[in-house]
Design a protein around this nucleic acid. Structure first.
Lengths: 223, 223
DNA sequence: CATCATCTTATGGTATACCATACTATGGAG
DNA sequence: CTCCATAGTATGGTATACCATAAGATGATG
């Protein structure tokens, strides 16, 4: 990691907020490698802010699970918790399942229209072939889903879980032959919601997570 | 809030860690009222540490959901999110349910013995009649349960959820006639786990949360 | 040549100083 | 008497200085 591509300039929001977002994006976008040390003073130079700001940002990222404090060595980019991936996928299946169910039960027509739009966007992202776009559109789709299901807390939790398996997720999406199944699964979720079938919606959502889980397992087994 | 009962002295861990724990306890123990402003400089005086420490602690507490930043006014003790209590109890029922199930399926005899011990402790706490003791023992019991179920992430999530309804929880425990039903429900969970009946364990755990939920609803309706 | 001790430096922890801004109180004008 | 303007103060945002400690390098001694 070098250069000053991270440098922020002060304008609207607080420096801290800007720095936080910049760092979060940088870590999630793999501009830092998992396990890479985040030495405070170099970070100050790269971001162009003082240590106070950097340290507060690191505390926040630590609480979010993106940064780990290594005793005696300070902060480092959190390494994905491979021993916990099963639990994480299990929880995602559970949570996305209940959200899809609630959505099928209570979403307004307008909300379903938003979901449709988000799905269209997701299909376009798959067509574009850029994994980062697919990931963003997927996130957006689920955000809309949880919003329509009125499960704000559950959404926060899922977001937190995804942070921990960010690397795995991007590998899953980039894996060969993921496109068609993923599109089919998402379409099933959408269809079940549209036709107001809660059981089917929950099942479809769980299946989708479980199929991603399967791929993640394979990825881990290989290397 | 006044006096210097919070003052920390530097010894083993970092000042920041100590201050963090002290503040977390103070908020969870209602030494600060929900909504109360947490002005930085007075906090420095009360804790006996510098603003750097206080600010980093506040960032961490903010990320944990115990502190909210009010735009233009700085930090304040987070007010319970009354509009989200239903969702929180729903999630707790879900998570504690799967933990109890997994525990019934996979816990070792030693782990079940630990659970038994934690339950005994909980019964003693109920006998003592001190709500704060009951809450601590309850937390300990569930921590043991999730540990035995090997659901570390789920436990972190439950802990985070409980932070948001801390106030409500303490009122629930302190409510009249809660003691006997609570003891009965916990005993059912324990019995189901001991006799390795996953379905019953999950059901019992859900019932326990739902009965607390019911009381919380009543509490909210009244006051 | 290996090993240990010591010195240097890198790093995080803590405190403080300074600045910009937003709230508040007070006084004057209408 | 009321309302607005202005000054003062409280508060958070940012930067920097200082200190303790732990890691790493270098040299001396066996």
């Amino acid at each position: 990691m070098s250069g000053d591509t991270l440098r922020i300039d002060r304008s609207a929001k607080t420096l801290r907020t800007l720095a936080l977002e910049r760092m979060r994006e940088a870590i999630m976008g793999f501009h830092f490698q998992p396990g890479e040390r985040l030495v405070e003073r170099p970070l100050c130079d790269q971001l162009g802010v003082s240590r106070s700001v950097v340290r507060e940002v690191l505390r926040q990222l630590e609480a979010e699970g993106l940064v780990q404090m290594i005793p005696g060595h300070g902060p480092a980019v959190a390494k994905p918790d491979l021993g916990r991936t099963d639990e994480i996928y299990e929880l995602r299946a559970l949570l996305e399942g209940i959200a899809a169910r609630a959505c099928a039960l209570t979403a307004t027509d307008a909300q379903i229209a938003s979901l449709d739009a988000a799905l269209t966007n997701l299909l376009e992202a798959w067509a574009s072939g850029a994994p980062v776009e697919v990931m963003r559109a997927t996130t957006k789709f689920y955000e809309t889903l949880f919003e329509a299901a009125d499960k704000r807390i559950a959404w926060e939790i899922v977001t937190g879980l995804n942070v921990r398996i960010n690397q795995l997720r991007s590998m899953t999406i980039a894996s060969e032959n993921r496109r068609e199944p993923a599109i089919a699964e998402m379409t099933e979720i959408m269809d079940a919601i549209r036709s107001r079938k809660p059981d089917e919606a929950e099942e479809a959502a769980r299946r989708h997570v479980e199929s991603a889980w399967q791929i993640a397992r394979n990825t881990l087994r290989l290397g």
